[in-house]
Computed example of a mutant assay.
Amino acid sequence: MIKILPLLIPLALLAACAGSNDPRYLIASAPGETVANLRSRSIEVRLVSLPSYAAASDIVAEGEGGALFALGGAQWADDPARGMTAALARGLSERTGAAAAMEPWPLNTGPDARLDVRVDQAYARADGIFELSGQFAVSSPGGTVREFVQRFNITTPVAGDGAAAAADALAQALAELARQVSLAM
Rank of each mutant, 00 (worst) to 15 (best):
V145M: 12
G142M: 08
G128E: 09
T109W: 00
Y123Q: 13
V119Y: 03
E131R: 15
R114S: 14
Q121G: 00
M102T: 12
F130K: 05
V149M: 14
A113P: 06
G134P: 06
I129Q: 15
G128Q: 06
G128F: 05
A137L: 13
Q121W: 03
G143P: 12
S93H: 08
A98M: 01
A100N: 04
T144W: 11
S93T: 14
D120N: 14
P104Y: 11
T144N: 04
A86Q: 13
A124P: 02
A98D: 03
D120I: 11
R151D: 15
A122I: 02
D127Q: 07
D120P: 00
D120T: 12
V117P: 02
A126W: 07
G110Q: 03
D112Q: 11
E94Q: 15
G110N: 03
A87T: 07
L92S: 10
F148A: 13
F130H: 08
N108A: 10
L132T: 03
A124S: 15
A137M: 13
R146W: 13
G97E: 03
W105L: 01
E94T: 12
V145K: 06
F148I: 09
R114W: 00
D127A: 09
L115M: 11
R95I: 08
A87Y: 08
A126D: 14
R95P: 12
T109A: 10
L107T: 02
W105C: 06
A124L: 06
A137R: 15
A100P: 05
F152C: 03
V119D: 09
F130C: 00
P141S: 07
G143R: 07
Q121R: 15
P141K: 05
D116Y: 05
A101T: 00
D112A: 13
F148T: 10
N153R: 13
F136P: 11
G97L: 04
A87W: 08
D116Q: 14
A99M: 09
A126L: 11
T109I: 01
F152Y: 10
P106E: 01
A86H: 07
V145C: 05
V149D: 12
L92K: 05
G134H: 10
S139G: 14
P104C: 05
A87N: 11
G143E: 10
S140Y: 08
D127P: 10
A122N: 02
G97M: 09
L107R: 14
F152I: 09
P106F: 03
Q150N: 11
D116F: 12
V119I: 15
R125I: 07
E147K: 10
F136H: 02
F152T: 04
N108F: 04
F130I: 03
V145D: 05
Q150G: 04
N108P: 00
Q121K: 14
F152A: 08
S139P: 04
V119F: 06
A89C: 02
P106Q: 04
T96C: 01
R151M: 11
S140F: 09
V138Y: 04
E103W: 10
D127M: 06
E131L: 15
E94N: 13
A124R: 10
Q150M: 12
W105Y: 03
D127G: 04
S139I: 02
T144L: 15
A86Y: 12
P104A: 03
D120S: 15
A99P: 00
T96F: 05
F136A: 08
A113H: 01
G97Y: 12
D127K: 02
Q150I: 06
A98N: 05
F130T: 09
R151G: 07
Q150W: 05
G110Y: 02
A87S: 13
S93N: 11
N153I: 09
F136M: 07
R118T: 13
